[in-house]
Design a binder for these strands. Structure first.
Lengths: 283, 283
DNA sequence: CTAAAAAATTCCATTATCCGGAACACAATT
DNA sequence: AATTGTGTTCCGGATAATGGAATTTTTTAG
């Protein structure tokens, strides 16, 4: 299987980000000048299931040979891309260095951290924090029940929003027009037999989530994994995220999910509150 | 039209990387064209101890207002930088997404992983894998003794090579001329009272390390932390890295470090061998 | 081992793109 | 209202990116 190629294209961060209000409705500007071309290359290399050679990148990109070669060379020079001895390319180490800082300095994450920890202690299960970026959820933090699994395996991962608890919770906090816009960009793919596979199903599910204030994921993304999630957002919706308690199906029964609902909601509310207070326009 | 001399300046990754041979001793080339300027901005934001505003970045960079503003806007648009509501900038989420892939797909790391795990099981202590990048060591992987500390806190971190076990081990594997070049770029800073603070001291230490085939860090970087490390490298030195076993001073006594030496050296040798075999020019 | 094909890299005239000084908004401060 | 500091936009000009084609290197085939 092969993740749908279509990336969101545009940058959503925390600030201006989440609801891109005054955006020209062009959904197809393929690259903001030179930098855009460079990032497009990184995207191609990142999305590939195996290390790519020059010509492979050439075929996947729309840049002419000469141009592409120079752009790649620049990326290598900057340490964002690496040319290995076997003539294949890898994402560069410098990205790790940047990401390390991006993570540890991220204010939103720092604010949420104590609440995550508490939620983990209360439930004893794995807790995730994810933030909405276009139509995907990017996992920002995680507290694991059993630490046998490695952390990096999840943080920074981007999953489709429509089939994860955190993603659906976050979507439910978007204003209607913005939500519709994003749903329009989605590309529904069936991962399991409970996966939501149409805009209609998703909208129905979201209205239920809005009413109940919590979202479930009953093996919609990965078989054997279930969770409850709740939305996090600040007053002007410039930050839209979610938090979840996850467990293996045999432990995360309907009853258990019901039990976790209150603590998850409370943690989410607490984070929303703190974020509203500490990341206000003027501080 | 002479061979080589191809890629220049800086890019150190895995491939051609590690010994960048024919380079002018430029110390601070502030930007390879447009991309270089963009990365320079990311660097400034990453290095800052607190979130920066536009004017602060302006003062720290050598780009004129108009130029800087446009470059920053492009970065924000690409999701590599985030403009928050309080007018400060943060590194963007997209860096996390890229780094997640960069880490999980990194061939060198994947090859080393089983050896790291084994070393951790044998010693019962924390094990680090770091790769040399210029004058710094970037930590690529880590197996912790007690999993209470979070992983991300170390992976992707870049530390000066001269004051860490992994760094010194790696440096010891460089050819003399390349080593001299890099030492010339170093900026010695005293972290503790055992920190190496001059090129002479470092060279002396490195010759000892080369003889013994292992490097110590006796609280040179951080008080209370000691380790033994061994170098990893492939035949042509295009990959230069190190592996270490680390512990708190009270446990990592001289005797303990001596005990760990053999397993560390063996793990390093095994990784070097595997890397030589699997990342050969022709595969 | 040699020949042929494919892939990777370099070249260079053209022009699109980026540059950057300066003017313009927009706050916050007095 | 005046002032200062900060962020954003403009636009002619120069630089740096472009991309087609030639060259070199690597790989495959004979």
């Amino acid at each position: 299987m092969f993740g749908s190629a279509a990336f969101g294209k545009r940058g959503f961060g925390l600030g201006e980000a989440a609801l891109s209000s005054t955006e020209k409705p062009d959904l197809h500007d393929a690259g903001t000048g030179t930098l855009g071309k460079a990032v497009a290359i990184l995207d191609i290399v990142a999305a590939a299931p195996h290390p790519l050679r020059f010509t492979e990148i050439l075929n996947l990109s729309d840049q002419p040979r000469g141009t592409l070669h120079r752009n790649i060379s620049n990326l290598v020079q900057e340490g964002l891309l690496t040319l290995k001895r076997d003539h294949t390319y890898e994402l560069g180490l410098r990205l790790l260095v940047f990401a390390s800082r991006a993570w540890s300095a991220n204010e939103f994450r720092v604010i949420a951290e104590p609440h995550l920890r508490r939620l983990h202690e209360v439930t004893g299960e794995t807790v995730h924090l994810g933030i909405l970026r276009g139509t995907e959820v990017v996992y920002l933090d995680k507290f694991e029940s059993r630490q046998t699994v490695r952390m990096y395996s999840q943080i920074g991962n981007a999953s489709p929003a429509y089939c994860t608890g955190v993603g659906k919770a976050a979507l439910s906090a978007l204003p209607q027009d913005e939500l519709d816009r994003r749903i329009g960009l989605m590309d529904f793919h069936r991962f399991t037999d409970t996966t939501i596979t149409s805009a209609e199903m998703l909208k129905l599910e979201l209205s239920r989530i809005r009413q109940e204030g919590r979202a479930f994921d009953r093996e919609e993304h990965e078989a054997g994994i279930r969770c409850v999630a709740a939305p996090i957002f600040n007053p002007d919706r410039s930050i839209v995220a979610g938090i979840s308690v996850t467990g293996p199906a045999f432990r995360a029964t309907d009853a258990a999910l019901e039990d976790w609902t209150r603590p998850v909601r409370e943690a989410a509310a607490a984070i929303s509150r703190d974020v509203g207070a500490r990341l206000a326009p003027r501080s």
